[in-house]
Amino acid sequence: MDNAQLLISGLANGCVYGLIALGFVLIYKATEAVNFAQGDFMMLGAFVTIGLTNTQYMGLPFWLALPISLGIMGALGYLLDRLIIRRLFGESQTAVVILTIALGFVIRFVAGLIWGHEPQTLQNPLAGKEARFGGLVLGMEDVAVIVVTILLTGALYVFFSRTKLGLAMQGASQNQLAAYYMGIPVKRVQGFIWALAGVVAGIAGILFAAKGAVDPTTGLLGIKAFAAAVIGGFGSLPGALAGGLIVGVIEPFSSRYIAAGYSQVAPYALLLAVLIFRPNGLFSQVRVKKV
């Protein structure tokens, strides 16, 4: 029973990693760039919602604040692309990587200025409620995290593989020039994907803030989400979720069964192992082109 409890809490944590990893994968799938600031985006999403909802700030009702903060995050993502990332169009991917790292620093700094450095939690209607399945006791937040993550991953997967816009995004990343020839507005597609990544980061942030406290350094969690995205194979949405779940589940189990000091190494060791032995992730997207 203990193990089942560990498993569930690991899954809930893993879903948050998976959600951040989804943000990485979205942007990677559509622009071949990696947004190193995705974790900080999540932190920002959490703080925007806290700023709207919590009583010491604006004190809006939760269900009203939810769409507003997601809208703000989407707008921020779009503006980021419009004002900054789009200027790097046609430059090397390394430039985007370094730019987003710098952006992470700036976001952390600004969030610290506005909301302070104390850990804060989101006041939400699910707080403190419990769900019981047999002998298992689950916080309602954990249940919400798991359900929302699975729904979101499914929706995004369908979006990318079935809709015209989703296919256009994949095309834009696989070969920009060919995408232009086919009449895909590559730049507009990129703007849309950054907005979408902002919304996903917002959702991840809200779920994370409902589960536990956030402070400006929470964004560094993004590094664990990297492990998730790499394990799942960058570029695969279900892979990102699976990678997140693997990392999330490994953490509580290793801290329980492996000697202290070695346990926090586990996710990174797994990351290195995957990179060494299966460089394209467990859900590889690389196919050798046949001539």
Partner: peptide, 22 residues
């Protein structure tokens, strides 16, 4: 003291460099 100021300024300088003087 403003915590994180150094890194924040540093990040802004870096963004400016990548955009305007790669």
């Amino acid at each position: 003291a403003i915590p994180g100021l150094e890194f924040g300024i540093f990040g802004m300088i870096l963004i400016a460099f990548i955009l305007f003087e790669p």
